[in-house]
Design a protein around this nucleic acid. Structure first.
Lengths: 93, 93
DNA sequence: ATTTTATATCGTAATATTGCAATATAGCAT
DNA sequence: ATGCTATATTGCAATATTACGATATAAAAT
């Protein structure tokens, strides 16, 4: 859990995910144009997101189609959901 | 968003939140016994969680009652929820 | 008043992360 | 075969994070 959150914990990586959502499909060189970061840096962030299984990449010719991995988003979501439910039981502070 | 995720992105801080959920109320010296970390380190992690508004602390005599800040959990949750909904529209990879 | 308990802060060493230029790789187009 | 395009990897400097001992603070108990 911590490792997924950690991968989310950088503005550039949030921006990448939101861009992927916005364009609803992605060949990632777009990102180099879209974000104010060097290509090497973006590649590094993509790797972090991939290691955390927040995105997955399919090779398509000489480009790579990176997409959000729904499964991990759902896992994170249901983790928070259950936290929310448990919080209803608590009555302090 | 990134800053909240970043605060969640450490196993000790996840452990603190889960402990707060488990005991359903908290006077935080418990944590020094519960977690295999020095008191200074725990205090540091508590500060990180507090800065991210994931917890709030009320002074109670000479102790402090730290509690989860539901509001932030809910915000995080609804961010992921809306991401999930947007993902349904996407059909690639 | 002194001691104890709970917590925070400071200083510091070890480690990790970030950003980037340079270089490498690999498929595509010519 | 050669050059182009998309991406990854490497090396490195700058910065941030983590962990902790030592010390500070402040309320409570004696």
């Amino acid at each position: 859990m911590a490792s997924v959150a950690k991968a989310l914990g950088h503005p550039a990586r949030i921006a990448i995910l939101e861009y992927l959502l916005k364009v609803q499909s992605c060949i990632c060189n777009d990102l180099v144009i879209e974000l104010p970061l060097a290509q090497a840096t973006i590649s590094q962030h993509l790797r972090a997101l991939k290691n955390a299984e927040l995105i997955k990449g399919n090779i398509e010719g000489n480009a790579i189609c990176y997409c959000i991995n729904e499964k991990t988003i759902e896992e994170l979501n249901s983790y928070l959901e259950s936290m929310k439910i448990q919080l209803l039981k608590i009555n302090c502070c």
